[in-house]
Design a protein around this nucleic acid. Structure first.
Lengths: 216, 216
DNA sequence: AGGATATGAGTGGCCAGACCACTTTCAAAA
DNA sequence: TTTTGAAAGTGGTCTGGCCACTCATATCCT
Protein backbone atom coordinates (compact mmCIF):
# COMPACT_ATOMS: atom_id res chain seq x y z
CA UNK A 1 0.00 0.00 0.00
CA UNK A 2 2.41 2.61 1.23
CA UNK A 3 5.28 1.63 -1.00
CA UNK A 4 7.67 4.49 -1.61
CA UNK A 5 6.77 8.12 -2.11
CA UNK A 6 6.73 9.03 1.51
CA UNK A 7 6.88 12.67 0.63
CA UNK A 8 3.52 12.42 -1.08
CA UNK A 9 1.98 11.23 2.15
CA UNK A 10 3.53 14.21 3.82
CA UNK A 11 1.97 16.54 1.30
CA UNK A 12 -1.38 15.03 2.19
CA UNK A 13 -0.71 15.12 5.90
CA UNK A 14 0.27 18.75 5.75
CA UNK A 15 -2.90 19.54 3.88
CA UNK A 16 -4.98 17.72 6.48
CA UNK A 17 -3.16 19.46 9.27
CA UNK A 18 -3.85 22.79 7.66
CA UNK A 19 -7.52 21.96 7.47
CA UNK A 20 -7.86 20.65 10.99
CA UNK A 21 -5.79 23.30 12.67
CA UNK A 22 -7.64 25.87 10.63
CA UNK A 23 -4.49 27.53 9.44
CA UNK A 24 -5.26 30.44 7.20
CA UNK A 25 -3.20 32.00 4.44
CA UNK A 26 -0.45 34.07 5.98
CA UNK A 27 -0.32 31.98 9.13
CA UNK A 28 2.83 30.24 10.14
CA UNK A 29 3.04 26.47 10.10
CA UNK A 30 5.24 24.49 12.49
CA UNK A 31 8.96 24.41 11.87
CA UNK A 32 10.57 21.74 9.77
CA UNK A 33 12.14 20.05 12.76
CA UNK A 34 8.87 20.07 14.62
CA UNK A 35 6.88 18.70 11.70
CA UNK A 36 9.47 16.04 11.07
CA UNK A 37 9.17 14.80 14.62
CA UNK A 38 5.39 14.79 14.85
CA UNK A 39 5.13 13.03 11.51
CA UNK A 40 7.85 10.57 12.42
CA UNK A 41 9.88 11.32 9.37
CA UNK A 42 13.34 12.58 8.60
CA UNK A 43 13.81 16.25 8.07
CA UNK A 44 15.17 15.80 4.58
CA UNK A 45 12.12 13.85 3.51
CA UNK A 46 9.87 16.47 4.99
CA UNK A 47 11.78 19.14 3.15
CA UNK A 48 11.16 17.38 -0.14
CA UNK A 49 7.46 17.74 0.48
CA UNK A 50 7.76 21.36 1.55
CA UNK A 51 9.89 22.35 -1.41
CA UNK A 52 7.37 20.76 -3.74
CA UNK A 53 4.56 22.73 -2.19
CA UNK A 54 6.68 25.85 -2.36
CA UNK A 55 7.28 25.43 -6.07
CA UNK A 56 3.54 25.26 -6.56
CA UNK A 57 3.18 28.50 -4.64
CA UNK A 58 1.15 26.94 -1.88
CA UNK A 59 3.57 27.83 0.89
CA UNK A 60 6.23 30.43 1.35
CA UNK A 61 9.40 29.97 3.33
CA UNK A 62 11.50 32.71 4.82
CA UNK A 63 14.89 31.86 6.16
CA UNK A 64 15.23 32.53 9.83
CA UNK A 65 11.54 33.10 10.22
CA UNK A 66 9.63 30.05 9.22
CA UNK A 67 7.20 28.60 6.74
CA UNK A 68 3.94 30.30 5.98
CA UNK A 69 0.79 29.31 4.22
CA UNK A 70 0.39 31.51 1.19
CA UNK A 71 -2.79 32.70 -0.40
CA UNK A 72 -4.29 29.88 -2.37
CA UNK A 73 -5.26 32.26 -5.08
CA UNK A 74 -1.60 32.79 -5.82
CA UNK A 75 -1.07 29.22 -6.80
CA UNK A 76 1.35 28.73 -9.61
CA UNK A 77 -0.84 26.71 -11.91
CA UNK A 78 -0.30 29.04 -14.79
CA UNK A 79 3.40 29.45 -14.23
CA UNK A 80 3.74 25.73 -14.02
CA UNK A 81 1.75 25.34 -17.17
CA UNK A 82 4.07 27.68 -18.94
CA UNK A 83 7.17 25.78 -17.95
CA UNK A 84 6.15 22.65 -19.71
CA UNK A 85 3.31 23.57 -21.96
CA UNK A 86 5.12 26.42 -23.58
CA UNK A 87 8.51 24.82 -23.37
CA UNK A 88 8.80 23.18 -26.74
CA UNK A 89 8.71 24.98 -30.01
CA UNK A 90 5.23 26.31 -29.82
CA UNK A 91 4.08 27.84 -33.02
CA UNK A 92 3.72 31.57 -32.81
CA UNK A 93 0.39 31.29 -34.47
CA UNK A 94 -1.00 29.14 -31.67
CA UNK A 95 0.14 31.52 -28.98
CA UNK A 96 -1.28 34.47 -30.80
CA UNK A 97 -4.55 32.75 -31.45
CA UNK A 98 -4.91 31.46 -27.92
CA UNK A 99 -4.33 34.89 -26.51
CA UNK A 100 -7.10 36.25 -28.68
CA UNK A 101 -9.37 33.47 -27.53
CA UNK A 102 -9.05 34.71 -23.99
CA UNK A 103 -9.51 38.31 -24.95
CA UNK A 104 -12.68 37.73 -26.86
CA UNK A 105 -14.02 35.44 -24.19
CA UNK A 106 -13.46 38.27 -21.73
CA UNK A 107 -15.48 40.68 -23.83
CA UNK A 108 -18.21 38.11 -24.23
CA UNK A 109 -18.30 37.56 -20.50
CA UNK A 110 -18.48 41.24 -19.69
CA UNK A 111 -21.36 41.70 -22.06
CA UNK A 112 -23.27 38.80 -20.55
CA UNK A 113 -22.73 40.11 -17.06
CA UNK A 114 -25.68 42.26 -16.09
CA UNK A 115 -23.86 44.02 -13.33
CA UNK A 116 -21.10 45.26 -15.55
CA UNK A 117 -23.37 47.33 -17.74
CA UNK A 118 -24.76 49.08 -14.71
CA UNK A 119 -21.40 50.08 -13.40
CA UNK A 120 -20.08 53.56 -13.77
CA UNK A 121 -16.66 52.38 -14.73
CA UNK A 122 -17.11 53.12 -18.38
CA UNK A 123 -17.03 56.88 -18.01
CA UNK A 124 -13.82 56.83 -16.05
CA UNK A 125 -12.50 54.33 -18.52
CA UNK A 126 -13.10 56.78 -21.33
CA UNK A 127 -11.55 59.59 -19.36
CA UNK A 128 -8.32 57.71 -18.92
CA UNK A 129 -8.52 56.76 -22.54
CA UNK A 130 -8.40 60.36 -23.60
CA UNK A 131 -5.65 61.12 -21.17
CA UNK A 132 -2.00 61.47 -21.89
CA UNK A 133 0.00 58.44 -22.91
CA UNK A 134 -2.64 55.79 -22.46
CA UNK A 135 -1.07 52.40 -23.00
CA UNK A 136 -2.59 49.92 -25.38
CA UNK A 137 -1.97 47.18 -22.91
CA UNK A 138 -3.97 48.99 -20.24
CA UNK A 139 -7.02 48.84 -22.43
CA UNK A 140 -6.89 45.11 -22.94
CA UNK A 141 -5.80 44.31 -19.42
CA UNK A 142 -8.68 46.33 -18.05
CA UNK A 143 -11.08 44.23 -20.10
CA UNK A 144 -9.47 41.04 -18.90
CA UNK A 145 -9.79 42.17 -15.30
CA UNK A 146 -13.39 43.18 -15.74
CA UNK A 147 -14.26 39.74 -17.01
CA UNK A 148 -13.71 38.56 -13.46
CA UNK A 149 -11.90 35.37 -14.44
CA UNK A 150 -8.58 35.53 -12.65
CA UNK A 151 -7.30 32.33 -14.19
CA UNK A 152 -7.98 33.57 -17.66
CA UNK A 153 -6.28 36.82 -16.75
CA UNK A 154 -3.15 35.01 -15.66
CA UNK A 155 -3.03 32.86 -18.75
CA UNK A 156 -3.53 35.93 -20.90
CA UNK A 157 -0.72 37.76 -19.18
CA UNK A 158 1.70 34.95 -19.90
CA UNK A 159 0.62 34.51 -23.48
CA UNK A 160 0.97 38.21 -24.02
CA UNK A 161 4.61 38.03 -23.04
CA UNK A 162 5.18 34.97 -25.16
CA UNK A 163 3.74 36.64 -28.21
CA UNK A 164 6.14 39.53 -28.01
CA UNK A 165 4.11 42.04 -26.04
CA UNK A 166 1.82 42.92 -28.93
CA UNK A 167 0.29 45.84 -27.05
CA UNK A 168 3.43 47.82 -26.41
CA UNK A 169 3.13 51.51 -27.00
CA UNK A 170 0.59 54.26 -26.53
CA UNK A 171 -2.66 54.62 -28.39
CA UNK A 172 -3.07 56.90 -31.36
CA UNK A 173 -6.11 59.07 -31.92
CA UNK A 174 -7.41 56.62 -34.47
CA UNK A 175 -7.21 53.85 -31.94
CA UNK A 176 -9.08 55.90 -29.39
CA UNK A 177 -12.00 56.02 -31.75
CA UNK A 178 -11.87 52.29 -32.20
CA UNK A 179 -11.72 51.73 -28.48
CA UNK A 180 -14.60 54.05 -27.88
CA UNK A 181 -16.69 52.10 -30.31
CA UNK A 182 -15.81 48.88 -28.59
CA UNK A 183 -16.70 50.30 -25.19
CA UNK A 184 -20.00 51.61 -26.48
CA UNK A 185 -20.90 48.22 -27.84
CA UNK A 186 -20.00 46.61 -24.54
CA UNK A 187 -22.14 49.07 -22.68
CA UNK A 188 -25.04 48.10 -24.88
CA UNK A 189 -24.13 44.48 -24.15
CA UNK A 190 -23.75 43.96 -27.85
CA UNK A 191 -21.09 41.30 -27.74
CA UNK A 192 -20.96 40.63 -31.46
CA UNK A 193 -20.25 44.22 -32.38
CA UNK A 194 -17.77 44.62 -29.58
CA UNK A 195 -15.85 41.51 -30.56
CA UNK A 196 -15.95 42.43 -34.22
CA UNK A 197 -14.57 45.84 -33.38
CA UNK A 198 -11.91 44.36 -31.18
CA UNK A 199 -10.85 41.88 -33.81
CA UNK A 200 -10.63 44.67 -36.36
CA UNK A 201 -8.45 46.71 -34.07
CA UNK A 202 -6.27 43.73 -33.37
CA UNK A 203 -5.68 43.08 -37.04
CA UNK A 204 -5.06 46.74 -37.72
CA UNK A 205 -2.53 46.76 -34.91
CA UNK A 206 -0.77 43.73 -36.28
CA UNK A 207 -0.37 45.32 -39.68
CA UNK A 208 0.87 48.48 -38.04
CA UNK A 209 3.52 46.56 -36.18
CA UNK A 210 4.68 44.82 -39.30
CA UNK A 211 4.87 48.12 -41.16
CA UNK A 212 7.03 49.55 -38.41
CA UNK A 213 9.21 46.48 -38.39
CA UNK A 214 8.23 45.49 -34.87
CA UNK A 215 8.27 41.81 -35.32
CA UNK A 216 8.06 39.92 -32.13
CA UNK B 1 22.73 38.33 -5.27
CA UNK B 2 22.17 34.66 -5.74
CA UNK B 3 20.31 34.19 -2.52
CA UNK B 4 17.59 32.53 -4.52
CA UNK B 5 17.07 29.03 -3.36
CA UNK B 6 19.57 26.59 -4.65
CA UNK B 7 16.97 24.02 -5.55
CA UNK B 8 15.26 26.47 -7.84
CA UNK B 9 18.47 26.92 -9.79
CA UNK B 10 18.64 23.17 -10.07
CA UNK B 11 15.11 23.03 -11.41
CA UNK B 12 16.15 25.49 -14.06
CA UNK B 13 19.42 23.73 -14.79
CA UNK B 14 17.72 20.40 -15.21
CA UNK B 15 15.17 21.93 -17.52
CA UNK B 16 17.91 23.50 -19.59
CA UNK B 17 19.86 20.28 -19.62
CA UNK B 18 16.84 18.44 -20.89
CA UNK B 19 16.50 20.92 -23.70
CA UNK B 20 20.13 21.00 -24.70
CA UNK B 21 20.76 17.30 -24.43
CA UNK B 22 17.59 16.78 -26.35
CA UNK B 23 16.21 14.33 -23.88
CA UNK B 24 12.83 13.06 -24.94
CA UNK B 25 9.95 11.82 -22.83
CA UNK B 26 10.71 8.33 -21.66
CA UNK B 27 14.45 8.84 -21.76
CA UNK B 28 16.50 8.39 -18.65
CA UNK B 29 18.30 11.28 -17.04
CA UNK B 30 21.52 10.92 -15.05
CA UNK B 31 21.34 9.46 -11.58
CA UNK B 32 20.93 11.61 -8.52
CA UNK B 33 24.48 11.05 -7.39
CA UNK B 34 25.83 11.87 -10.80
CA UNK B 35 23.76 15.03 -11.16
CA UNK B 36 24.68 16.15 -7.68
CA UNK B 37 28.34 15.90 -8.49
CA UNK B 38 28.22 17.64 -11.85
CA UNK B 39 26.11 20.45 -10.41
CA UNK B 40 28.24 20.73 -7.30
CA UNK B 41 25.40 20.37 -4.86
CA UNK B 42 24.49 17.95 -2.15
CA UNK B 43 22.30 15.05 -3.05
CA UNK B 44 19.53 16.11 -0.68
CA UNK B 45 19.33 19.51 -2.29
CA UNK B 46 19.21 17.95 -5.70
CA UNK B 47 16.46 15.67 -4.52
CA UNK B 48 14.40 18.65 -3.43
CA UNK B 49 14.49 19.83 -6.99
CA UNK B 50 13.73 16.41 -8.41
CA UNK B 51 10.80 15.81 -6.09
CA UNK B 52 9.36 19.19 -7.06
CA UNK B 53 9.64 18.28 -10.70
CA UNK B 54 8.10 14.94 -9.99
CA UNK B 55 5.13 16.49 -8.25
CA UNK B 56 4.62 18.58 -11.35
CA UNK B 57 4.70 15.44 -13.43
CA UNK B 58 7.74 16.49 -15.39
CA UNK B 59 9.79 13.50 -14.37
CA UNK B 60 9.07 10.05 -13.14
CA UNK B 61 11.27 8.11 -10.76
CA UNK B 62 11.44 4.38 -10.40
CA UNK B 63 13.30 2.92 -7.49
CA UNK B 64 16.24 0.84 -8.55
CA UNK B 65 15.96 1.96 -12.13
CA UNK B 66 16.40 5.67 -12.34
CA UNK B 67 14.73 8.94 -13.18
CA UNK B 68 12.95 9.41 -16.46
CA UNK B 69 11.50 12.30 -18.32
CA UNK B 70 7.77 11.94 -18.07
CA UNK B 71 5.45 11.80 -20.98
CA UNK B 72 3.23 14.38 -19.36
CA UNK B 73 0.66 12.01 -18.04
CA UNK B 74 -0.38 11.54 -14.47
CA UNK B 75 0.81 14.75 -13.02
CA UNK B 76 0.19 14.88 -9.36
CA UNK B 77 -0.04 18.58 -9.99
CA UNK B 78 -3.73 18.31 -10.56
CA UNK B 79 -4.36 16.24 -7.50
CA UNK B 80 -2.36 18.42 -5.19
CA UNK B 81 -3.48 21.75 -6.46
CA UNK B 82 -7.10 20.76 -6.57
CA UNK B 83 -7.16 19.53 -3.01
CA UNK B 84 -5.37 22.60 -1.79
CA UNK B 85 -6.82 25.31 -3.93
CA UNK B 86 -10.26 24.37 -5.02
CA UNK B 87 -11.84 25.01 -1.67
CA UNK B 88 -12.38 28.42 -3.12
CA UNK B 89 -15.53 28.54 -5.20
CA UNK B 90 -14.28 31.35 -7.34
CA UNK B 91 -11.19 29.40 -8.37
CA UNK B 92 -13.30 26.40 -9.18
CA UNK B 93 -15.61 28.50 -11.28
CA UNK B 94 -12.68 30.10 -13.07
CA UNK B 95 -11.25 26.75 -14.08
CA UNK B 96 -14.59 25.51 -15.29
CA UNK B 97 -15.24 28.65 -17.24
CA UNK B 98 -11.77 28.80 -18.76
CA UNK B 99 -12.03 25.25 -19.96
CA UNK B 100 -15.29 26.06 -21.68
CA UNK B 101 -13.70 29.08 -23.28
CA UNK B 102 -11.20 26.85 -24.99
CA UNK B 103 -13.81 24.34 -26.03
CA UNK B 104 -16.06 26.88 -27.64
CA UNK B 105 -13.17 28.61 -29.30
CA UNK B 106 -12.24 25.29 -30.82
CA UNK B 107 -15.68 24.84 -32.29
CA UNK B 108 -15.62 28.38 -33.59
CA UNK B 109 -12.26 27.78 -35.19
CA UNK B 110 -13.33 24.56 -36.86
CA UNK B 111 -16.36 26.25 -38.34
CA UNK B 112 -14.31 29.08 -39.73
CA UNK B 113 -11.82 26.72 -41.27
CA UNK B 114 -12.83 26.03 -44.84
CA UNK B 115 -10.82 22.87 -45.13
CA UNK B 116 -12.48 21.20 -42.19
CA UNK B 117 -15.91 21.18 -43.77
CA UNK B 118 -14.54 19.47 -46.85
CA UNK B 119 -12.96 16.68 -44.94
CA UNK B 120 -14.47 13.28 -44.70
CA UNK B 121 -13.73 12.95 -41.06
CA UNK B 122 -17.29 13.62 -39.99
CA UNK B 123 -18.66 10.36 -41.26
CA UNK B 124 -16.06 8.32 -39.44
CA UNK B 125 -16.60 10.49 -36.43
CA UNK B 126 -20.28 9.58 -36.44
CA UNK B 127 -19.45 5.93 -36.89
CA UNK B 128 -17.30 5.86 -33.81
CA UNK B 129 -19.95 7.81 -32.00
CA UNK B 130 -22.49 5.05 -32.58
CA UNK B 131 -19.98 2.42 -31.61
CA UNK B 132 -19.70 0.63 -28.35
CA UNK B 133 -18.67 2.53 -25.27
CA UNK B 134 -17.79 5.83 -26.85
CA UNK B 135 -16.23 8.06 -24.26
CA UNK B 136 -17.52 11.55 -23.68
CA UNK B 137 -14.00 12.79 -23.43
CA UNK B 138 -13.17 11.46 -26.87
CA UNK B 139 -15.82 13.66 -28.38
CA UNK B 140 -14.50 16.85 -26.87
CA UNK B 141 -10.87 15.97 -27.34
CA UNK B 142 -11.47 15.25 -30.98
CA UNK B 143 -12.92 18.71 -31.40
CA UNK B 144 -9.98 20.25 -29.62
CA UNK B 145 -7.60 18.40 -31.89
CA UNK B 146 -9.48 19.38 -35.01
CA UNK B 147 -9.21 23.02 -34.09
CA UNK B 148 -5.54 22.70 -34.91
CA UNK B 149 -4.36 24.78 -31.98
CA UNK B 150 -2.01 22.55 -30.07
CA UNK B 151 -1.40 25.04 -27.33
CA UNK B 152 -5.07 25.37 -26.64
CA UNK B 153 -5.31 21.59 -26.65
CA UNK B 154 -2.64 21.26 -24.00
CA UNK B 155 -4.16 23.89 -21.80
CA UNK B 156 -7.54 22.27 -22.18
CA UNK B 157 -6.16 18.88 -21.24
CA UNK B 158 -4.82 20.19 -17.97
CA UNK B 159 -7.89 22.22 -17.15
CA UNK B 160 -10.04 19.19 -17.80
CA UNK B 161 -8.26 17.22 -15.12
CA UNK B 162 -8.21 20.22 -12.90
CA UNK B 163 -11.98 20.53 -13.02
CA UNK B 164 -12.51 16.96 -11.97
CA UNK B 165 -12.59 15.20 -15.32
CA UNK B 166 -16.07 16.40 -16.23
CA UNK B 167 -16.25 14.10 -19.25
CA UNK B 168 -15.69 10.80 -17.53
CA UNK B 169 -17.97 8.03 -18.66
CA UNK B 170 -19.57 6.80 -21.82
CA UNK B 171 -22.24 8.57 -23.80
CA UNK B 172 -25.89 7.72 -23.51
CA UNK B 173 -28.22 7.54 -26.49
CA UNK B 174 -29.61 10.93 -25.62
CA UNK B 175 -26.16 12.39 -25.76
CA UNK B 176 -25.50 10.82 -29.12
CA UNK B 177 -28.40 12.79 -30.51
CA UNK B 178 -27.01 15.96 -29.04
CA UNK B 179 -23.56 15.26 -30.42
CA UNK B 180 -24.96 14.50 -33.84
CA UNK B 181 -26.73 17.82 -33.87
CA UNK B 182 -23.53 19.58 -32.92
CA UNK B 183 -21.59 17.82 -35.66
CA UNK B 184 -24.23 18.65 -38.22
CA UNK B 185 -24.06 22.31 -37.32
CA UNK B 186 -20.29 22.26 -37.56
CA UNK B 187 -20.49 20.64 -40.98
CA UNK B 188 -22.73 23.46 -42.11
CA UNK B 189 -20.18 25.85 -40.55
CA UNK B 190 -22.94 27.19 -38.39
CA UNK B 191 -20.85 28.14 -35.40
CA UNK B 192 -23.62 29.74 -33.39
CA UNK B 193 -25.84 26.69 -33.49
CA UNK B 194 -22.94 24.37 -32.80
CA UNK B 195 -21.81 26.33 -29.80
CA UNK B 196 -25.31 26.70 -28.49
CA UNK B 197 -25.78 22.98 -28.77
CA UNK B 198 -22.50 22.31 -27.09
CA UNK B 199 -23.28 24.64 -24.25
CA UNK B 200 -26.63 22.98 -23.77
CA UNK B 201 -25.01 19.57 -23.62
CA UNK B 202 -22.43 20.83 -21.20
CA UNK B 203 -25.05 22.17 -18.84
CA UNK B 204 -27.10 19.03 -19.13
CA UNK B 205 -24.04 17.01 -18.31
CA UNK B 206 -23.27 19.10 -15.29
CA UNK B 207 -26.75 18.61 -13.90
CA UNK B 208 -26.46 14.91 -14.56
CA UNK B 209 -23.25 14.74 -12.60
CA UNK B 210 -24.73 16.56 -9.67
CA UNK B 211 -27.74 14.29 -9.67
CA UNK B 212 -25.49 11.27 -9.53
CA UNK B 213 -23.42 12.78 -6.81
CA UNK B 214 -20.31 12.98 -8.90
CA UNK B 215 -18.88 16.08 -7.47
CA UNK B 216 -15.35 16.76 -8.42
C1' DA C 1 16.40 56.20 31.97
C1' DG C 2 16.99 55.53 27.20
C1' DG C 3 19.11 54.14 23.19
C1' DA C 4 22.55 51.30 21.03
C1' DT C 5 24.65 46.81 21.12
C1' DA C 6 25.57 41.96 22.00
C1' DT C 7 23.82 37.58 22.71
C1' DG C 8 21.30 33.40 22.24
C1' DA C 9 17.43 30.68 20.68
C1' DG C 10 14.97 29.33 16.74
C1' DT C 11 14.59 28.86 11.86
C1' DG C 12 15.42 27.44 7.06
C1' DG C 13 19.48 26.13 3.63
C1' DC C 14 22.67 22.89 2.70
C1' DC C 15 25.80 19.04 2.96
C1' DA C 16 28.17 14.42 3.88
C1' DG C 17 27.68 9.83 4.95
C1' DA C 18 25.31 5.96 5.91
C1' DC C 19 21.79 2.24 5.41
C1' DC C 20 17.84 0.10 3.05
C1' DA C 21 14.90 -1.73 -0.87
C1' DC C 22 14.73 -2.56 -5.37
C1' DT C 23 15.97 -3.59 -10.40
C1' DT C 24 19.34 -4.99 -13.68
C1' DT C 25 23.20 -7.46 -15.18
C1' DC C 26 26.14 -11.09 -15.83
C1' DA C 27 29.03 -14.69 -14.48
C1' DA C 28 29.16 -19.00 -12.06
C1' DA C 29 26.81 -23.18 -11.00
C1' DA C 30 23.59 -26.82 -12.10
C1' DT D 1 21.52 -24.45 -21.97
C1' DT D 2 19.05 -22.97 -18.03
C1' DT D 3 19.00 -21.51 -13.39
C1' DT D 4 20.85 -19.13 -9.64
C1' DG D 5 22.89 -15.67 -7.04
C1' DA D 6 26.09 -12.15 -6.14
C1' DA D 7 27.48 -7.46 -7.36
C1' DA D 8 26.75 -2.95 -9.04
C1' DG D 9 23.78 0.79 -9.61
C1' DT D 10 19.70 3.36 -8.36
C1' DG D 11 16.19 5.84 -5.70
C1' DG D 12 14.28 6.30 -0.58
C1' DT D 13 15.27 7.63 3.87
C1' DC D 14 17.49 8.98 8.14
C1' DT D 15 20.99 11.17 11.12
C1' DG D 16 23.77 14.72 12.50
C1' DG D 17 26.05 18.54 11.58
C1' DC D 18 27.23 23.37 10.14
C1' DC D 19 25.96 27.84 8.19
C1' DA D 20 23.17 32.25 7.51
C1' DC D 21 19.57 34.69 8.90
C1' DT D 22 15.74 36.76 12.04
C1' DC D 23 13.98 38.15 16.17
C1' DA D 24 13.37 38.86 20.90
C1' DT D 25 15.81 39.61 24.91
C1' DA D 26 19.25 41.06 27.85
C1' DT D 27 23.15 43.88 28.46
C1' DC D 28 25.98 47.73 28.16
C1' DC D 29 27.19 52.48 27.57
C1' DT D 30 26.07 57.29 27.58
Amino acid sequence: MNQSKRYLDIVRDIRDMIRQEKIKPGDRIPSERELAETMQVGRSTLREALRSLELLGLIETRRGEGTFLSDYRNHKLVEVLSTFVLQDNQSHEDVWQTRQIHEMAAIQEICQNEAASQMKIWDSFRLRLEGESFQREDFVRELMVLSGNRLSLKIWFLLKQYSGNPYDGTVSSEEIDRMNDILTAIERQDADTAIRGFKAWSEWLQKERIRNGNYS
